[in-house]
Structure formats: structure tokens, C-alpha cells
């Protein structure tokens, strides 16, 4: 991989992450915040892969593999939780899901 590609790729990952952050802050539905989290996860994956390619070392790439797997598990568990929440509250908006407040 050409070294010049490093910084643009990092910037791209950063941008994706920031968009995920923005989504997390702005969206008020638990499902959509989930989407934002997926975005952030992918940004991290991209970072891993970029550096792995850059250093020609497989460790980072293996992490990407693990990351994707974890994302799958997380999505499964998270969506399961979403379904449970929906069953309980018939709603997925944060305005209603304020049970952290006692």
C-alpha cells in the first residue's frame, strides 16, 4: 500500500466515526442510534485494516475479522433487546425510555 493513502483513509474513518457520533447524539430512537453505533464500529474496522495494510501485518486484519463477528453478535443481542423493549413499552423513543431516572 502506498504510504500517501494512509492519511486519507484515516480521515475517512474519522469522518465515518464522527457521523456515527452525530447520529448517536441526534437520533432519538433506539434503533437508529444502533445504526449509528454500527457506523462507528465500521470506522474502527477501517482504521484497523488501514494500519494492517500499511505495516503489512496480519494482526490488524484479524481484528477486523473479529470486529465483524462481534458486530454480528452485538447486532443480534442489541436487536433482541430492542424487541424486548418494544414489547414492554410499545415504543422505542428515548423520551419514553427514561427509566434510568428513578
Amino acid at each position: 500500500m502506498k504510504p500517501e493513502l494512509l492519511y486519507p483513509c484515516l480521515l475517512l474513518a474519522n469522518g465515518l466515526f464522527t457521523l456515527g457520533l452525530l447520529g448517536l447524539l441526534l437520533r432519538r430512537n433506539i434503533l437508529l442510534t444502533f445504526l449509528a453505533i454500527e457506523l462507528m464500529l465500521n470506522a474502527a474496522n477501517l482504521n484497523f485494516l488501514t494500519f494492517s495494510r500499511y505495516h503489512e501485518e496480519p494482526t490488524g486484519a484479524i481484528y477486523v475479522l473479529f470486529g465483524i463477528c462481534l458486530a454480528a453478535v452485538e447486532a443480534v443481542i442489541g436487536l433482541g433487546l430492542v424487541i424486548r423493549l418494544f414489547r414492554q413499552h410499545q415504543n422505542l423513543g428515548f423520551a419514553k425510555l427514561a427509566e434510568l431516572k428513578w
Binding site: P3, L10, L11, H55, E57
Partner: peptide, 16 residues
């Protein structure tokens, strides 16, 4: 991360 903008030489990979 601006330091990565300058083309750093890649580290040789022999770990694995």
C-alpha cells in the same frame, strides 16, 4: 493524527 499525513515508512512485519 496529522503526523500520519507525512509519508511514514511502513514497519516491516515479521511478527507472525
Amino acid at each position: 493524527l496529522r503526523a500520519f499525513g507525512r509519508a511514514l515508512p511502513p514497519r516491516a512485519a515479521e511478527a507472525v
